[in-house]
Simulated scan of single mutants.
Amino acid sequence: MDFELPGEDHPKRQEIRAWFEANPHPSGLALAQAGFAVPHWPRPWGLEADAELQLIIDQEMKRAGVHVPRNPVAINNCAQSLLTHGTEAQRQHFLWPALSGEHTWCMLFSEPSGGSDLGNLRTVARLDGDHYVIKGHKIWTSLAHKAKVGVLVARTDPDQPKHKGLSEFLVDMDTPGIRVRPIIDMSAHENEYNEVFLEDVRIPADRLLGKEGEGWALCTTQLQTERVALSRPGAIWGHGPSARELVEGLAEIRALADGAIRDEAAQIFVEGEILRLLACRALSDRMNAKAPGPEGAIHKMLAAPHGQRVVDLAKRSQGARGMIAGEKPFPSQLAGDDPYDDWDYAFWFSQAVTLGVGTQEVLKNVVAERMLGLPRELDPTARLPWAEARRKQA
């Protein structure tokens, strides 16, 4: 089977290339309206592209030096839910600003008391006339300090078991009662993560996504979609330097003359190719309307430590010089607009990739229970009404 994409003279490639030549500096809205932000989506949002066309578009965008708007929560994770569960009014209101990058989104999921147990969250949403009143506390929320829209999971029925009483909402982040506090780390870069406090936040009832009680199904699908999206060959969340670029760079500085480095680089290159082919299969599943499943956990479980190995070998190949900030390991590979393209940034950030979007331990549980059929981890509160379980834990 041929896993390479069509050549330079292929009609599909020529058509896409001609568009970028005619639009050398497209706006985010122009890219979205052309269908390039989410080419696999149905029209008018996308092009109903098959996996091959989507990968061709990715290549041609990189060749043209063009990037889709950076709005990962909307484009990679949550906005797809509006296609199948949202109302037409919600789609028209939220999707174009999301796909064009005008409105950044964030995911209000994790909570301080829940850890990795999302089903045990304590944020509550109470229906009051034609509004919901929300009270709670979220943490580790990426981009909350920049987001216009938050995808919020809250408990609407405390008398249901913990996974069945959840609902999902689309919240304007400038709504009164929402307070965002940045989490500052030691990297000296601008913060990415935040705490979000919700004090009697009133949102219109038509901001409910789907139906009450569907929150668990929605958010788990979104997390699986995110894990697939983050499992491309790039070292950091699927972006940035890849194993192919690592091998090219090591050849450039003649590091492959060292047998130990050559063997390690070969192993990392094979891992990168496996991830590339898994990404092709994931794209094919999406084109055929197959909902993302627990296989996303395998993708992310493989991709996260692989990315760490990619950037680690790049820095080690520099020797002591690799400890100096700004000393690029490979002179011909300069940073692009995406900070993850920078080898230094990717190296410092790489420690987070086995924690974010599900720790390795959580992912192993998913694979063990849902794919290998091993016994589930004992949870005596799973079938109890959430309010009763909380009283017993108190």
Rank of each mutant, 00 (worst) to 15 (best):
residue 35 G to D: 05
residue 42 P to H: 03
residue 118 L to F: 15
residue 101 G to D: 09
residue 114 G to I: 03
residue 39 P to L: 03
residue 47 L to C: 03
residue 118 L to N: 07
residue 73 V to L: 05
residue 38 V to F: 02
residue 119 G to W: 01
residue 111 E to G: 11
residue 35 G to R: 03
residue 127 L to C: 08
residue 130 D to F: 04
residue 71 N to T: 12
residue 88 E to C: 01
residue 46 G to Q: 05
residue 94 F to C: 05
residue 103 H to F: 15
residue 78 C to V: 09
residue 92 Q to R: 14
residue 125 A to H: 02
residue 41 W to D: 02
residue 79 A to H: 06
residue 45 W to P: 01
residue 31 L to R: 09
residue 131 H to P: 00
residue 30 A to E: 15
residue 33 Q to N: 11
residue 48 E to F: 05
residue 101 G to Q: 07
residue 61 M to N: 07
residue 96 W to Q: 10
residue 108 L to V: 11
residue 55 L to V: 06
residue 85 H to I: 02
residue 50 D to L: 02
residue 32 A to S: 14
residue 97 P to R: 05
residue 83 L to A: 03
residue 40 H to P: 01
residue 114 G to D: 02
residue 39 P to I: 03
residue 80 Q to D: 14
residue 75 I to H: 08
residue 131 H to L: 03
residue 84 T to C: 06
residue 112 P to G: 09
residue 70 R to E: 12
residue 98 A to M: 12
residue 66 V to W: 13
residue 113 S to I: 10
residue 84 T to Q: 10
residue 72 P to I: 06
residue 125 A to E: 01
residue 118 L to C: 04
residue 104 T to E: 12
residue 123 T to P: 01
residue 39 P to A: 04
residue 70 R to I: 08
residue 39 P to W: 02
residue 62 K to Q: 14
residue 79 A to W: 09
residue 38 V to P: 00
residue 40 H to S: 10
residue 57 I to E: 00
residue 76 N to P: 01
residue 61 M to C: 09
residue 87 T to E: 08
residue 113 S to K: 13
residue 45 W to H: 05
residue 38 V to A: 11
residue 76 N to M: 09
residue 115 G to Y: 11
residue 92 Q to K: 13
residue 124 V to Y: 00
residue 70 R to V: 11
residue 134 I to T: 02
residue 120 N to T: 11
residue 59 Q to Y: 11
residue 42 P to C: 03
residue 38 V to N: 02
residue 115 G to V: 08
residue 64 A to I: 04
residue 121 L to I: 15
residue 47 L to Q: 13
residue 66 V to Y: 15
residue 78 C to S: 12
residue 72 P to T: 13
residue 118 L to K: 06
